[in-house]
Structure formats: C-alpha cells, structure tokens
Amino acid sequence: MYKSGFITVIGRPNVGKSTLLNQVIGEKISIISDKPQTTRNKIQMVYTGDDFQIVFLDTPGMQMPKNILGDYMLKISRTTLEEVDIVTFMVDESMQTGKMDSYILDQLKVISTPIVLLINKTDKLKKDEVEILVKKYKDMGIFEDVIPISALNNDNIERYLEVLKEMIPEGPQYFPDDMITDQPERFIISEIVREKALVNLEDEIPHGIYVEIDKIVQREDKELIDVFANIYCEKNSHKGMIIGKNGRMLKTIGQQAREDIEKLMGSKVNLQLWVKVEKNWREKANKVKYFGYK
C-alpha cells in the first residue's frame, strides 16, 4: 500500500519552520534568517520513501499584516489549513503563550484538519521544562500528537516523520523520486540572494527587498554559469546601504550568495548583481502581483 499526503507547516515568524524542512529534505530550499517575513511564498518540498511520499508546504509566518504584501502572506498561510491532510503547528521554547501563538491557536480550534504540534528549540530547555510544555499543549485537546524537537540539531525529526507516515492516507505518488521541490531553479537562486541581504542588512531594509533573476546563461565551455540578478528596494537611501561604501556590502552579499548557488547548481558561477529602486512597492497591488505574489 502506497501512502501520500500534504502537510502544511505553520507558526509565527522565526520559530524554525524553514530550518525544519531543510533538515527533512536534506537540501537548502527555504531561506533562513532571524528577521520576520523571511518566507513570502508557499513553497512545496517533497520527501519520498519506499512506500510513501510527503509533500510539505512551507508558508509565510503568520503575523498581523502591515501592507498589501503582508495581506498576501497571511492569506497564503490561512488558506492552506483546510486544503491539506495534516497541519503542523510549530512553537518555540517559550514557556508563556504569546499573542501571535494565541491567535494561531484560535484559528486551529475551528478547523477539521488533524494537527501535529512541534515544540522547537528544546535544546535550550531543561528536561522538566520540556515535560511541562508537552503537557500544557496536550491538555489543550486539539493536537493528534505533541513532539519536542530541535530542528537545528536534527533532534527527534525522525519521530515526527514516523508520526506523519502513520497519519497520511493511502494515495498516489505525486512527484518523481528525485524531485525535492516544485520551485524552479530561478526562484531558489533569487531566494538565496535575498537571504544574504536579510542576513547582512539592517532591520528596516530587508522587508522591502525583492530579487529578480534577469537571466542565467551556461557558457559554451560549460565550466561557468553566468547569473544576472536585480535587487529591488523601496528607497534611494536603501540602495546606498545595499551597495555600501565602495561597494563592499553588495560584494559581501554577492560572495555569500555565489557560494550557495554553486552548491545548488554543481558548477562555478559568475553572479552579477544590480540594485534598483521601486518606491514603496509593497503598498502597490500591481507591483506586488508583478513581483509574483498573487
């Protein structure tokens, strides 16, 4: 009997959703940073075994929207809850339930989809603190299972996968054995560049960054791939900060991104970056759609 299912992974920003899924898949597909709004799109990742296939949906962290892009991201997170076989709700090691987690819990109480809760970052807690948190969430009575994990350390991830394998229904294999994401190469490359900008820049700037891959060219000798990309920001002052004094910041972003892109493509890469200004694009519905958020 072959089993398959779709699992959405939800939670507030920065609880470790993308770290978890990158560990499960074994490849870096979702980008990671310590800033909110890191994940903007619904990204499908595929985990295939001998007699099962699990399709994970990495969604934007649930948060109160502040602009049109934020509205789009919250809608993506909400609409997946009833469209999948299982919902995975991830929280962190916080002993108190915060405002955003309470909001998400209220959403989960009214859906019919089975829910698995993951308590992430338990490597930061003592054993008795983990037990207290597990009991707290089990007592809510809305979860099929409550599993303490450390996504960063790959701790207890196997147990999580075993639980999912038990819960998913009988079904077909949706994707080929060697496919790990539904996202095209261009998207992954653009996200790698955006991640490096998120990591290196100040808090205010990254939320307004969008990376567009202009073209990817394989040279005739096939020893080098040229990647041309545009980094869009919302203000002229931000453009200056992204470029940095004597171009140092842009060079740092480019060097770090190139290393990850070369791992992804298995080839040497010549990455060329340009910085452009599209003023307040997150407030403009036509620009949000043009940049692919629709």
Rank of each mutant, 00 (worst) to 15 (best):
E27P: 06
E278I: 10
S18I: 02
K235C: 07
V116Q: 00
I32Q: 07
K75H: 13
Y293D: 00
I54K: 03
N22G: 03
W274D: 07
D139H: 05
P172F: 11
L224N: 09
I180D: 00
D51Y: 10
L152Y: 14
D203C: 01
K251V: 06
L224K: 13
T181W: 04
V269R: 04
K3Q: 13
I188S: 00
Y103K: 15
D71I: 07
T79Q: 15
G244P: 02
F89D: 03
N230R: 14
L250G: 09
Q44S: 13
P184D: 14
I242R: 10
Y232C: 07
I157F: 06
E82A: 14
S150T: 11
M241S: 04
S18D: 05
N236M: 09
R219I: 01
G244F: 10
K127M: 12
M73T: 05
K124I: 11
Q272R: 14
D226R: 12
I10E: 03
T97A: 05
I157A: 08
F143A: 03
N270T: 05
Q255V: 14
Q255Y: 13
A151I: 07
V146L: 05
M62I: 15
M167V: 02
L198D: 09
D177Y: 12
M265F: 11
E162P: 02
T39A: 05
T59E: 01
K138V: 02
R186I: 14
N230A: 06
I86V: 15
E234M: 11
N156S: 11
V163E: 09
D34E: 12
S30Q: 03
I180F: 10
Q173F: 15
D58F: 03
S18E: 00
I216D: 02
A151P: 11
G208L: 10
G247K: 13
P13A: 08
I132K: 15
R248Q: 13
M100P: 04
Y137G: 05
E83W: 10
E162T: 11
I149C: 07
M179H: 01
E262G: 09
K28Y: 03
I25T: 04
A257E: 07
K289V: 10
T19Q: 06
F56C: 00
I189L: 08
N236Y: 12
M100L: 15
